[in-house]
Design a binder for these strands. Structure first.
Lengths: 199, 199
DNA sequence: ATCAAAAACTGAACAGTGTTTATTTAATTA
DNA sequence: TAATTAAATAAACACTGTTCAGTTTTTGAT
């Protein structure tokens, strides 16, 4: 039927990303498909390939948006804390995951096709989160050498991430859901305690 | 062509599981398909459905076998350690993941179809790993109350798991691969140090 | 205003996926 | 040897991502 001109390509791209996020949120990443996105937008599949290189591109950009939200949410938690900001950002990270399980899992369970690359924004945004934790840690443990801060930030953050992963995939069967934040507190606080003892 | 009688159904099932693990090991979970398994065995797809309920069933049982190997490997590491067994089992867990990335990722990145259940063995084996860590922790921290041991074991183990996840998915960009075991040591040792300080 | 060119959009095709089922073939039993 | 049972297949179904030849509409120039 040809050009309808109702939406610009930029608008179509935005619509597609929002629709994809909607489907991920409601039905999970596994239920996302190109045709489903297109149909829900009122277009056909081919149109998506005018604004995305391929399906991987669509998913990556949708996940990048989630990663942004996740970053802002975590940052917000740390900024509203007056002490132990490292713990607070960790709890903020967990809370976003618990509140948006499907979107959170989509970020970390998406299997990148062989031979494809991450979109640049994706790697940047992951890096930004680590950097944020590192900056909070350096304030909280001023006597720690910068090499140690770097390693510790990654260890701590990976640990918090691991708790989120296992909690969201139902693999923490011996732990009640309301105890999951306690796991984060336990890990972060004891690790920090151990660090300060070394000084 | 009908019954060839070359293999019993039990043998066919074992062949399928071994073939699936082979494909996962070499090409990753994303490249696994029912037809590929069947073809590599010298059978057709339909035959697989004589011994598996569905594809989910096949993947689950293949992953359960990996989970067993992972458990034995981790147990072995802890048994050969004379002190700090909690750290050693953690490093053993990490090493298995680094040595068998595709099999390890298959366990944790497999998206269970909506409305399907884990096979019972699967949940049991995950539980067994947590229980093992908990039993080592209780020896290493005898003065810790049993409630705390339970929580701490899960927090610690999730932490170690998180490091494995991010390392294998290439999200620890600020860290060299040979430093990853250091991350595990840092997390585990500092957390244990913090715990002992609380006593 | 008319016509050509460019851009937007579709629909159908392709190879692949998991799954089901009628059918064929071989081994077992009577 | 004939009837029965079990093993295995081939083909179909609905779905997936991806491509591309056409069709339709808008735009730009005469």
């Amino acid at each position: 039927m040809g050009r309808r001109g109702e939406h610009s390509l930029a608008e179509i791209k935005a619509m597609a990303l929002n629709t994809a996020i909607e489907i991920i949120t409601q039905q999970g990443l596994a239920q996302l498909s190109a045709r489903k996105v297109a149909k829900q937008m009122g277009y056909t599949v081919g149109t998506l390939y005018l604004v995305f290189k391929n399906f991987h591109d669509l998913v990556s950009q949708a996940n990048a948006m989630t990663l942004d939200e996740l970053y802002r949410h975590s940052l917000n938690y740390s900024q509203h804390a007056i002490e132990n900001k490292v713990l607070q950002i960790s709890l903020g990270y967990l809370q976003y995951a618990l509140d948006n399980p499907n979107r959170w899992r989509a970020i970390f369970e998406y299997q990148m096709p062989e031979q494809e690359q991450w979109i640049p924004e994706y790697a940047e945004k992951v890096q930004k989160l680590f950097a944020l934790v590192e900056s909070l840690l350096v304030v909280q443990c001023p006597s720690l050498p910068s090499d140690s801060v770097h390693l510790t930030a990654h260890a701590l953050w990976s640990g918090v991430h691991g708790i989120c992963v296992l909690a969201l995939t139902g693999k923490l069967q011996g732990i009640e859901l309301e105890q999951v934040p306690d796991l984060v507190s336990l890990l972060v606080n004891n690790c920090l305690l151990g660090l300060q003892q070394q000084d």
